[in-house]
Simulated scan of single mutants.
Amino acid sequence: MRALLVVNPKATTTSERSRDILVRALRSEVDLTVEYTKRRGHAATLARDAARAGIDVVVTLGGDGTVNEAVNGLLTAEPGAKDPAGGADRRPALAVVPGGSTNVFARAIGLPRDWAEGTYVILQALRAGTTRTIGLGRADDRYFTFCAGYGLDAEVIRRVERARLRGKVSTPWLYMRSIGVQYFTETERKTQLLTLERSGEADVPSLASVVVQNTAPWTYVGDRAVNACPDASFDKNLDVMALKVLRVPSTARFFAQLASARPALTGKQVLTLHDVGSFTLRASRPLSFQLDGDYLGERGKVEFVAVPQALRVVC
């Protein structure tokens, strides 16, 4: 079995020594090539080239951003392929060693948070030849594994990324503080700018902020899962949660429900949709947008599609 290990050298929870241990462990099971990412987007190129070269497994060591890039490389490796749904067997499998600060995707597929424990699970699965086939989401021309955000969610991630560039460490406190500062000082809270459009359904206008989930949870705060769409699943289409307004009382109620770990969000200012195959979000002016925790700039419109049975995962 041939495998490629894609290493993000800036992975926050591993060291050079731990990377060496991982390489030796993987080489005990597979014919391994190791590549280090050098820039944003490099993991996608490495994964795409590996798929075209007939590699059997792509292993990532990094956070959710590295995973997302690798997935996009794998899903775009077939020139001219228009419908990746159901094509998991044509692609290399993906194995994810958790090396970032949150590792939402790795934890969502059942891997331990610790990189060493995660490596053990992956080695056991490689020996047994077991994989799980999952669905993905696509936003315009980019695939995502667990979530997308349009509006406040993406604005917070943009603020966190800027803080990390200034040397701040990614912690739950950094995210909590960023939410508060963003909400009270920069976010447009008085105007609802988004419209949700679905074929055969009436448009839903006047939405303030939207989260799209391909699985649950939406994210983690430390060891605690945070769920905006608790019924979202890799085995179904996409789930949507939209805040209709961002007034202080309703927004505070929303975060209180998230913190209480209720099975579902309630309230007249919250819209939830389950198992949706495709839809479009249109903004009256460009708004912040993120995929899998990576800020991607501002968009005026995003088209979402569920892509079932798209990827084999070693777990």
Rank of each mutant, 00 (worst) to 15 (best):
R132M: 08
P79V: 11
A88W: 00
P98Q: 04
T119E: 11
T102D: 07
A70F: 10
E155M: 09
T102G: 13
A77F: 07
D64H: 15
L136N: 05
G129A: 06
L74A: 12
A88P: 02
P84Y: 02
I134P: 00
F144K: 09
A116W: 13
R127Y: 06
P84D: 01
T60G: 04
T145N: 08
F144I: 06
G149D: 05
G118C: 04
P79F: 07
A125K: 13
R107Q: 07
L75W: 03
F146K: 03
V97K: 05
A77H: 09
S101T: 13
L94S: 01
R127W: 07
E117S: 11
R107L: 05
A77G: 10
A95Y: 06
A139E: 00
R159G: 02
G100W: 11
S101L: 06
A70Y: 09
G87Y: 00
Q124L: 14
P92V: 12
G110W: 03
G149R: 02
T145Y: 04
G63W: 09
T133A: 09
D141F: 15
E155L: 03
I157V: 15
T60K: 02
N103D: 15
A77C: 11
L75G: 08
T66Y: 00
N68V: 11
I109N: 00
G62M: 07
T60F: 04
D83I: 11
P79H: 12
A116L: 15
T131C: 03
L75H: 08
T131I: 01
L123Q: 10
I122L: 13
N72F: 10
G87T: 13
I134S: 00
L123G: 04
P84K: 07
V97Y: 07
R127E: 10
V156Q: 05
L61K: 01
D64W: 14
K82Q: 14
L61E: 04
V160C: 02
G137K: 12
R90G: 15
W115R: 04
V71A: 04
R138W: 02
A106K: 12
R138S: 08
P79A: 08
N72H: 12
R91E: 03
A128H: 14
A148L: 05
V97L: 14
R138A: 08
T145A: 13
R127H: 13
S101N: 07
E78F: 12
W115I: 06
P84H: 03
G65F: 01
D83A: 14
A88L: 02
V160R: 01
A106W: 12
R90S: 15
L61F: 11
R158Y: 08
A125M: 06
R159H: 15
D114V: 10
L123W: 09
G151P: 08
T76H: 15
E155K: 04
A139F: 03
P112H: 01
Y120H: 13
N68L: 11
N103F: 09
G62I: 08
G80W: 07
L136W: 05
G73K: 10
A77W: 03
A106D: 07
R113A: 13
P84N: 05
G137P: 11
G73R: 09
L61H: 06
G100L: 10
V160Y: 05
N72P: 10
T130I: 11
D140N: 15
T60H: 05
T66P: 06
Y150H: 13
V58Y: 05
L126F: 07
G87A: 10
A81R: 14
V156N: 06
L61C: 12
L123D: 06
Q124M: 15
G62S: 08
L94D: 00
R138M: 13
G110Y: 03
L126P: 01
I122W: 05
C147N: 12
